[in-house]
């Protein structure tokens, strides 16, 4: 079975007057039908850029240098614009971070859900409205019949994000990219939205790329996780394995920064004080070929800054890490 999404050697750079600056370097991952991958990392690590590259929506100035993105076997980096538009919203769709501004203020919710259906599936107005209503019910919006005719300003943030999910899933896409879908929402609503995504995924078999800072959600609903640092994948593997036994110092640092994730033995006893990773992600253009995390890393040695960052190396069948001095496997 070919994977729904296969990203190979994805390299994206920013064209500046002074030359090209790499933004994403040799990123690779695969995602099967009905599975979820989490992209985690600090802001500025290239998570959203990966999402936009997959959708073919890189902002002006950013260019795909090399690599391929296969959506169900079709390389979306090489298809003509018209084919790409036919795929967007139909075979792959995206949920944005800001539900407050991601809906068009001058059209009703129903009209907006209908757009993709009419555009991609050629449904008539009546049929599209019926599907839109079914979608609003599927995303558990109360009084869906009335909401269908509501304008976005009349809905709360959580409701709007549900509407966004309904729009994104209306055409039953093979791939859904959720770019920090809950960042702008209340904590209780965040959990509801993640539960909803999981539920709809089970029903539709959609593969999900989840970009989030919420490691609790990562542990909860994703199957694999890719940790990005400064545009490079530093660790990649099954979610439970990566989270229970992070091998890259950066991954370990991220886990330690999370106040609510306590698994296994860590759950018992007095909680340790909340950790932080000293320093910042190096800005674009100041990322050496050697390990970009070395200046912030407690385990760094001369080797780390003298030699190029090592390629991802398998340390178990599915678990890869890119580090000269990976952490030892934690003793369970």
């Amino acid at each position: 079975m070919i994977p729904i999404l296969s990203v190979r050697d994805l390299t994206v750079s920013l064209k500046r007057a002074s030359g090209t600056v790499p933004v994403l370097e040799r990123l690779s991952f695969e995602l099967d039908r009905g599975r979820t991958i989490a992209l985690v990392g600090e802001s500025g690590c290239g998570k959203s850029m990966t999402a936009l590259a997959i959708m073919g929506l890189l902002p002006d100035g950013f260019a795909l240098e090399k690599g391929s993105i296969l959506l169900d076997g079709e390389d979306v980096t090489k298809v003509p614009p018209a084919r790409l538009r036919a795929l967007r919203g139909n075979a792959m769709s995206m949920i944005f971070q800001e539900p407050m501004t991601a809906l068009n203020p001058v059209f009703t919710v129903g009209d907006q859900i209908c757009e993709a259906l009419r555009l991609h599936q050629g449904l008539g107005r009546q049929a599209a409205m019926e599907r839109a209503l079914a979608m609003l019910k599927a995303v558990q919006i109360p009084a869906a019949e009335q909401r269908l005719h509501a304008y976005p300003h009349a809905l709360s943030g959580g409701m709007r994000q549900r509407v966004m999910i309904a729009m994104a899933l209306a055409c039953r896409p093979k791939l859904l990219i959720a770019d920090e879908p809950t960042t702008a929402l209340d904590v209780t609503v965040q959990a509801q939205v993640f539960d909803l995504l999981k539920e709809l995924q089970e029903e539709m078999g959609t593969a999900i790329v989840l970009i989030t800072h919420d490691l609790g959600a990562v542990a909860d609903i994703t199957d694999t996780v890719a940790v990005l640092y400064a545009g490079r994948c530093v660790e990649h593997g099954p979610t439970l394995e990566v989270m229970e036994a992070p091998r890259h110092p950066y991954t370990r640092g991220l886990m330690a920064c999370s106040p609510h994730l306590r698994l296994g033995a860590a759950a018992a006893g007095v909680p340790e004080p909340l950790q932080e990773i000293p320093g910042l992600v190096p800005p674009l253009g100041q990322r050496p070929p050697s390990c970009a995390f070395a200046p912030r890393c407690a385990r760094a040695t001369d080797k780390c800054s003298a030699q190029d960052q090592p390629p991802l190396a398998a340390i178990s069948p599915d678990h890869e890490v890119s580090c000269w001095h990976p952490e030892e496997r934690a003793v369970a």
């Binding site: 959708m55 929506l57 018209a82 538009r85 036919a86 795929l87 967007r88 919203g89 139909n90 769709s93 995206m94 944005f96 800001e98 501004t101 991601a102 809906l103 068009n104 203020p105 757009e115 993709a116 555009l119 991609h120 966004m164 729009m167 994104a168």
Partner: peptide
């Protein structure tokens, strides 16, 4: 540059649309 225009683009809208 607003989010809802990006969202429309992401759902496959052509420039004329």
């Amino acid at each position: 540059g607003l989010e809802f225009v990006k969202a429309a683009r992401a759902s496959g809208a052509a420039p004329a649309y």
